[in-house]
Amino acid sequence: MVNYSDKIREISKRLLKDCKVDMIIGFRKGSVPMMNEPHFARTAEDVDELVWDSNCGINLANYLTDRKEKIGVAAKGCDSRNIVTHILENKIKREQLTIIGVPCKGMIDKRKIAGLVEGEVLEVTEDEEQINVKSSGGKKSFKKTEVLQENCAVCIHRNPVVYDEMVAEPVPEQTDVDRYEDVRKIEEMDPEQRWAYFDDLFKECIRCYACRNACPLCYCPTCFVDEAKPQWVGKSQDPIDIRTFHFLRAYHCAGRCTDCGACQRACPVGINMRMLTKKLEKDCKDLYNWEAGLTLDSRPPLDFYRPDDPEDFIK
């Protein structure tokens, strides 16, 4: 992933010069360790700011919603799957896009790394398989595979599923991962334990809605929690309202979520709300053999009827 930046810049400059696109959407280097900022480039000069490394966890499909321009967009595996979903849901047209595919070996988990070192993280650099961290307490190195975001560690679609250009040869896909170990643990709980588990999971939530807003699927003009006439959900810090927000939002993502991890990454207090979306993702896989965003040729399971749909839960 180290040399991707140069290649992205090279492709971007060409696309802009040939007037194939009006703008490029990518990342620029962040001002704090392990953070890059989603950024757009309209000129060759802007393009020089674009970078790619293991801190590009924000899903760029989120920045395409309802845009009118012709756009070149850098897309790792999950971004590309959300772009597919965006196209299926008419949030952007395929013809508007030039997708710069970025094979991905995963993004690093800033919280995990902060927890593994002494003091404050001051600088993080990487070479191909190694992450080097300088903190106020000293220096440490980690194998990248040890410090991946949780969703990246179990990712099975690292390569873009749709693209117009690729910045490198595809990377090998992970085949020996157990995607749903954590979900099964919750499935095995009794209702009492499960209620307590989610109580604990959401206890620090401040309702900033960073999870929702970082999610490319959450593009409703007015979210149900923001509706005032009628008002569906209370606005205080009442734990029931907080839980209602999280679990209804998850349901709205059923059959659409690609487990890109943007929600968990964005959360200022580190809540793993993916435990809700992953359960629905698992159900869609089990019931409909469906994984979101893999193809432009078929509709997602929840907006399509098949006579042979499993309906075991209907009496």
Binding site: E37, P38, H39, F40, I58, N62, Y63, I206, R207, C208, Y209, A210, R212, N213, A214, A266, P268
Partner: peptide, 13 residues
Amino acid sequence: SFSCINCGTCTFV
């Protein structure tokens, strides 16, 4: 503002 996702993190913290 391009990258802003309009969450309330900055204002709440």
